[in-house]
Simulated assay, not measured.
Amino acid sequence: MSSVNRVNSVNDMKQRYDVVVVGGGAAGLGGALALSRARRSVLVIDAGDPRNAPASHVHNYLGREGTPPAELTAIGRAEVAGYGGEIVRGGVVSAERLPGDEGFRVVTEDGSAVVARRLLVTTGIVDDLPPVPGLAERWGREVLHCPYCHGSEVADRPIGVLSTGPLSVHQALMWRQWSDDVTLFRHTGPEFGDEEYEQLAARGIAVVDGEVTGLEITDDRLTGLRLAGGRVVAREVVVVQPRFTARSAVLESLGLVPVAQEAAGHVIGSYIAADPSGATEVPGVWAAGNVTNLMEQLIGAANAGLRAAVAINADLIADDTRRAVEARRAGSGVVIG
């Protein structure tokens, strides 16, 4: 294996970097690529558990439509390494600000530590699925949530939408764009209003009462949803609404607190607040991708990583300039003020 494609071990890390990127998905690699091209010393620490691992292909990524997720990650790693960026496999357990302007100490699971002048955290989110037996095992295959990610691949198939919150009618109406055979299962969700029933009826979406207790699988394929009374409704795809939970432990160790995101009065997840460049409330710390935007898709996450990288490099340039001016003044004996 060439050195460009090699992923280093934690033991290969240097002691100090301009930027440490925590998370090696699209946002992390997008930021690391721009920073490496800007001639910054960059370390990416990747836990190796990407959110899109269950998916067979990525979509809506211009120029890479249909690429397997692992292949896209390998391409990104090679590009980062090609410009001198370093990538290690491992998890980060915490980060702390060092005294003065010395940056941050980043600690990994094995107790190793490095110092970074700036941090870019791209740890993503976790999809917490409804507690129905069998859903997790089919996640990313026939159990889906985003029609823009998977709708085209299951178009015209019998789709079931599992209601667990107030967004289920919206989901059903949205997925109706990809199939004329959509059934909305009431499950544990709230009662629908008259206007919602009228919308569903107008779009030909059937409603099934009762709680879903499991999936029917035949020859390793989803064939239906089983209700509490034993009835099985034939379906080939089931749509769910996960709760999106930010992987925010590293950011929380720096004092940042996750923010709850609501939709229709229902909490759908948590994220870390950041400005459009990804800058958080902690100076020197940026975040990008799903950890700060629950609805970001892959190509948007890569772009968010790029935006953060540009902001980080600008901040480092300002810091480099300040240090250079101080050194020049000290060398010349000039005293200002």
Rank of each mutant, 00 (worst) to 15 (best):
A249C: 08
A249P: 00
A249T: 10
A249K: 11
V250K: 07
V250H: 10
V250R: 12
V250Y: 05
E252W: 00
E252R: 04
S253C: 10
S253Y: 02
G255C: 08
G255V: 08
V259R: 12
V259N: 03
A260D: 14
A260I: 00
A260W: 09
A260V: 08
Q261I: 13
Q261C: 10
Q261D: 14
Q261K: 15
E262W: 11
E262M: 12
E262H: 13
E262S: 12
A263R: 15
G265P: 02
G265W: 10
G265M: 09
H266T: 15
H266F: 13
V267F: 12
V267T: 12
I268F: 12
I268Q: 15
I268Y: 13
S270K: 07
S270Y: 04
S270C: 04
Y271E: 12
Y271F: 14
Y271K: 07
Y271S: 14
I272Q: 09
A273I: 06
A273M: 04
A274C: 06
A274T: 13
D275K: 03
D275E: 13
D275G: 04
D275V: 02
P276W: 04
P276C: 11
P276N: 14
G278K: 01
G278W: 02
E281S: 15
E281K: 03
E281G: 07
V282H: 09
P283D: 10
P283L: 06
G284P: 07
G284V: 10
G284N: 10
W286Q: 02
W286D: 00
A287H: 04
A288Q: 07
A288R: 04
G289N: 07
G289W: 05
N290L: 10
N290F: 09
V291M: 08
T292R: 15
T292C: 01
T292A: 01
N293V: 14
N293L: 06
L294D: 01
M295V: 14
M295E: 03
E296D: 13
E296S: 15
Q297Y: 13
Q297C: 11
Q297E: 09
L298V: 15
I299W: 01
G300K: 02
A301Y: 05
A302M: 12
A302Y: 02
A302S: 14
A302H: 05
N303I: 11
N303V: 11
N303A: 15
N303E: 11
G305T: 03
G305S: 00
R307S: 00
R307K: 09
A308I: 02
A308L: 02
A309M: 07
A309G: 00
A309F: 05
V310G: 03
V310W: 03
A311F: 04
A311T: 01
A311N: 03
I312M: 08
I312A: 06
N313Q: 06
N313A: 01
A314Q: 09
D315K: 01
I317H: 01
D319M: 10
D319S: 08
D320K: 02
D320S: 07
T321D: 14
R322C: 07
